[in-house]
Design a binder for these strands. Sequence first.
DNA 1: ACTGAAACCTCCGGTTG
DNA 2: CAACCGGAGGTTTCAGT
Lengths: 177, 177
Amino acid sequence: MRDPPATQCRRPGDTRGCPQIGTANQEADIDAVDEQLLALLQANGRASYAELARQVGLSAPAVHERVGKLESAGVITGYTAVVDPAAVGLGVTALIGVIDSDEVDDVGILEAMSALPHVEDCWRTAGTEGYVLKVRVTDIPALEDTINALNRIRGVARTRTTVVLSTKWEGRHGRAE
Amino acid sequence: MRDPPATQCRRPGDTRGCPQIGTANQEADIDAVDEQLLALLQANGRASYAELARQVGLSAPAVHERVGKLESAGVITGYTAVVDPAAVGLGVTALIGVIDSDEVDDVGILEAMSALPHVEDCWRTAGTEGYVLKVRVTDIPALEDTINALNRIRGVARTRTTVVLSTKWEGRHGRAE
DNA sequence: ACTGAAACCTCCGGTTG
DNA sequence: CAACCGGAGGTTTCAGT
């Protein structure tokens, strides 16, 4: 069968194992049909090529080829199931700003943060906080553990945690509901 | 005398005996195979049922049924293609804290924020900032437009914007390699 | 949860505009 | 070069056991 596009990274120079990073590609030529396909696949990542073909008015092979090109161009970096965090026992979400001290290498901090399994997102930011993380944990004690672990990282001066009371929406693409 | 296949009972000896009040799915019973399926589908949302069946050691119809139940139980809420934002012209990411003034209804603020198409995530937060948003826009002028639009919302007292310099990772699920 | 079968889809080659 | 066509092989999705 065909190789699954999401499981392996093809770009050199990325951090290990992370399927999606918006690093390199600035430009790709995407016409109206491609945009339509992207919107359809963002709304339903398991839509069959035949179904997509019906919606955009092309044949299934044509759609298959276009999607394949979007994948190999790095526009589509993978496909994922969206899982309700609460349903799998991750009831607490928090945003944590990490203030890094001046003279320590970023790579070490990044590797240490990456080793924490509950850090879902990691952004390098301008401003007082060098990094902002989104973490999801089972409960408040687990959040405390994560905060403690972050503060033990060499090069982390301080953290500032904002607990998420409720998620209004997440991962919305374009359309205003 | 076959056991009914449709309904799954919750664990009988559960320590917290309180059944939840009808709103959201707190917990579903998820066995080891289900967790495996969730991990596989988060890694590759387009994996075929046959492929999943091979990986978990079941038949394809069995996997199909299990995934269907995870979907209707609300554990899997959807599938989506992961698109590189830069490749579709969204080169600027920012986190915006929204400080709401005291005496205005939340619903109005939420609706107004929801109307802004570039607000991908919206979290209600504890702390000085009532909401934190993640926005993705084409460029800095577009970010300015979004900030201005947020500040025009009735009930928004102030905003605090943190520009994302680079995304280290996003949407990671569980595994820290 | 497995087997078997029919409908469907994927995906290859070749062909056209 | 992008898109269609045909068909072989794999997949989904029903039954029933």
